[in-house]
Design a protein around this nucleic acid. Structure first.
Length: 499
RNA sequence: UCCCCGGUAGCUCAAUCGGUAGAGCAAGCGGCUGUUAACCGCUGGGUUGCAGGUUCGAGUCCUGCCCGGGGAGCCA
């Protein structure tokens, strides 16, 4: 009786014969030995086929098998320090389940366009494997966090008749002859459910028809939105902080290997411990306009220029000297490509810095922060920062005003470090009926569609608050990715609906 | 909606001033006893995004369009 094993749990079977079922991720060969890198979804494992140790037909199959062929492989689990997981399989038998021909994604570099067109296959590669495992861990952590605190997970509808904030960024659909919009936020429904169940959270897809093509945007993304009765702004900030700390620590506890595959330095994440810095919008504006910010940006500029000079020198050396022998040619080519890529990134940043310096210096109280401003603010701190009490004019109609200063709204944003931008937005909701009606009128919104929402202020209105956390932006930050599109299995963005 | 960059072999990219379209990888074949994006040799592989223009001659210059990437605005 042969044991079936998943690669993830191979360590349990050291010295035993097991069967793996999976696909061939990669193969390296010599005359009498094949190294098969097999993946089974749970991990990757090197399987060694050594000609003198296997029957002729097994050897023949190992020679024939191609990248991404499906296979069933049996062998002895043995410890091998050279392997990433620490274990490898000494192959005794190999069955081909399906022989693949012409798999398009090779272990060599590809462009984004090519890979996105083949997202259904790209998901099989190692880097995507690591990201999706972390995505699962984050989702799991979120559910566990709220469950442990007595929240109910209840869902808001996806089709909605009323817009939360303007209609320009809504996807309109035909709902049995009536216009309906794809949800931009479950918040209003979340408030209704909080009045029924005290503490709830929604977790689902949200849709934004923003014509944005940037590394921070998706047309369809997932948002977790807790909403709590009898909560004020301070309690909400406490909860947001606790949630983000918990998510990060869970990833560190369970997905260290995946982080290392992504080249993510865990130290930046280790620092994500409460308390996070909290500043008011007004303080944030002072920081932006400060000489310290100008100094910081100038230092960044100098650092980038130094790095550019260093890389250019290294590339020059690699091109001219061509050290033969111990250094492989492929390694040099790879390093040169890496340098070229980094240099183009540096060029872009160097182009941006003067613009950022201008934008920061000239920032006026009352404006909303742009992407560059958020990046600059987050660079002043080594962990996420909470910015609260924004000018009410730039925030949504449902936000409660600060009783101590009517120009301000009791709202809060959390900015991720390292320039990943806003990952949380929320605050305390307006709970007074007449004030809310006045706000709806000020924003020129149709009162009729909000009648049900106003009922929440007519019958047992209480102070309440909530926030939304964007899953993909949070993941991009935790994984250290340049773009959010890699954090979701099938990204939907402007100009990309397939696959 | 606006600004910047790009589109050349299956993939990643070269091609000087406008002058014979090329390399690496992949694929196929051969070699190599432990490889870590293996390595070495050989072979096949092209409507240079599309349409028009300038020119003796266009991948290269000009005009328009299409597609993609990055950014602004807006946002999580």
């Amino acid at each position: 009786m042969v044991l079936e094993a998943r690669i993830e749990e191979l360590w349990r079977f050291e010295g035993q014969e097991v069967t793996l079922k999976g696909w061939l991720a990669h193969k390296r060969s010599s005359k009498r030995i094949h190294f098969l890198i097999v993946r089974d979804g749970s991990g990757f494992c090197q399987c060694v086929v050594y000609q003198p140790e296997v029957p002729a037909e097994v050897w023949e199959r190992a020679e024939r098998i191609t990248q991404e062929s499906a296979l069933q492989i049996t062998g002895l689990v043995r410890r091998d320090e050279r392997q990433i997981g620490g274990y490898e399989l000494g192959v005794r038998d190999l069955e081909i389940v399906h022989l693949t021909q012409g798999y398009p994604i090779t272990p060599k570099p590809h462009g984004v366009d090519f890979l996105l067109d083949r997202r259904h296959l790209w998901l099989r590669s190692r880097r995507q494997w690591a990201i999706m495992r972390i995505r699962h861990q984050v989702v799991h952590a979120i559910h566990r966090f709220f469950d442990e605190r007595g929240f109910l997970k209840l869902d808001a509808p996806i089709f909605t008749g009323n817009a939360v904030e303007g209609t320009t960024t809504l996807f309109e659909t035909d709902f049995f002859g009536q216009p309906a919009y794809l949800s931009q936020s479950g918040q209003l429904y979340g408030e209704a459910m909080a009045m029924a169940f005290g503490r709830i959270y929604t977790f689902g897809p949200t849709f934004r028809a923003e014509k944005s093509k940037t590394r921070r945007h998706l047309a369809e993304f997932w948002m977790v939105e807790p909403e709590m009765a009898f909560f004020d702004l301070e309690m909400t900030m406490d909860l947001a902080e606790e949630l983000v700390e918990y998510i990060v620590q869970q990833v560190l506890a369970h997905r260290r290997f995946e982080l290392s595959l992504l080249g993510r330095d865990p130290e930046a994440l280790e620092r994500v411990r409460r308390p996070f810095p909290r500043i008011t919008y007004t303080e944030a504006v002072e920081i932006l306009r400060s000489p310290e910010t100008q100094r910081m940006l100038r230092a960044d500029e100098e650092r980038l220029q130094a790095e550019r000079a260093e890389l250019e020198a290294e590339a020059e050396a690699l091109r001219s000297e061509r050290p033969a022998g111990e250094v492989r040619k492929g390694e040099i080519e790879h390093r040169l490509a890496e340098i070229a890529h980094r240099l183009s990134e540096i060029e872009e940043e160097l182009k941006n810095i003067p613009l950022w310096m201008d934008s920061a210096r000239n920032f006026r109280w009352g404006e909303d922060f742009g992407g560059a401003d958020e990046t600059i603010l987050s660079r002043h701190f080594d962990r996420p920062v909470l910015v609260h009490r924004y000018p009410a004019a730039v925030k949504a109609f449902y936000m409660k005003r600060d009783p101590r200063d009517e120009r301000l709204a009791l709202g809060v944003d959390m900015l991720a470090p390292e320039g990943y931008g806003e990952i949380i937005g929320g605050g305390q909701r307006e709970d007074d009926l007449d004030t809310l009606i006045a706000r709806i009128r000020e924003h020129n919104l149709p009162l009729e569609v909000y009648e049900w929402y106003l009922d929440l202020r007519r019958y047992g209105s209480v102070p309440h608050a909530g926030f939304g956390l964007g899953l993909e932006r949070t993941l991009a930050w935790i994984c250290g990715l340049k773009h959010v599109r890699e954090t979701i299995p099938f990204p939907r963005m402007m100009g990309r609906l397939f696959p």
